[in-house]
Design a binder for these strands. Sequence first.
DNA 1: CATAAGGCTTCCAGTTACTGGAAACTCAAG
DNA 2: CTTGAGTTTCCAGTAACTGGAAGCCTTATG
Lengths: 132, 132
Amino acid sequence: MNIGEVASRSGLPPKTIRYYEDIGLVRPQRGSNGYRAFRETDLHKLIFLGRARALGFSIEDCRVLLSLYEDESRESAQVKAIAQQHLSAIEEKITQLQAMHATLSHLVNSCHGDDRPDCPILNDLAGQAAGG
Amino acid sequence: MNIGEVASRSGLPPKTIRYYEDIGLVRPQRGSNGYRAFRETDLHKLIFLGRARALGFSIEDCRVLLSLYEDESRESAQVKAIAQQHLSAIEEKITQLQAMHATLSHLVNSCHGDDRPDCPILNDLAGQAAGG
DNA sequence: CATAAGGCTTCCAGTTACTGGAAACTCAAG
DNA sequence: CTTGAGTTTCCAGTAACTGGAAGCCTTATG
């Protein structure tokens, strides 16, 4: 398979696939013309990577997960530990975003949004915490 | 004020303040020794920036918000529009993260996490969607 | 006055995970 | 043979800093 085909079959852009080769996540062979020659196992890895990335795992997490995926003697506890850590990180981010959302939606609601300069949003950012 | 003082008063690291000067968000004067000389207004701007960044606004948003903050003839509608856009972006991110969380927590719960290689997390990433 | 510690300066590089674009080569179709 | 599409490499840029090095300035101490 050329890169175009693995791209459409994996859903990853060719650029991303080349990048993944650069950083050693996949190692396609090469044809005599210099083109990358992907095998089915390369495609599987790329699909794996696409899914892991879609779940928000970092590239380095993906690297470890991929090595566990290929390691027949892995312990599922290792996989679970990585996933749990990532889950905690997601939870933390959600909490942060919800806090931002709460503050900001409050401010947005308290702003007239008209042609006058008076603005509780700016007041708050300026540190005046215009009580509301 | 030297950079150390504005740093502790604004809560921003000196590195970040220098960076903000680099990209033109603040323009402190200079003393004869070459040190940055911050005025109160510079401090206010930095506090403003710190709060806006804490609410997740991008640097470019901050740049616009800061110019509105300094523009006596602004219309609060402009500020509100930026804030609302950002609020939507936050909501979108939360939704994405919640989707990740749902999928991942399901997978984590279905994984034994013991010394055996069998792992529903890896199965799912590999695209086998081990029904469960 | 010498020195040492700490703060300040600039500049360069690295981070994350790609993405865009240029110049050049290969392949398939007509 | 030409044209267009696909592929190659390489370089640069993105966002928002952060770390570190080399060197100047200031302040405290002996």
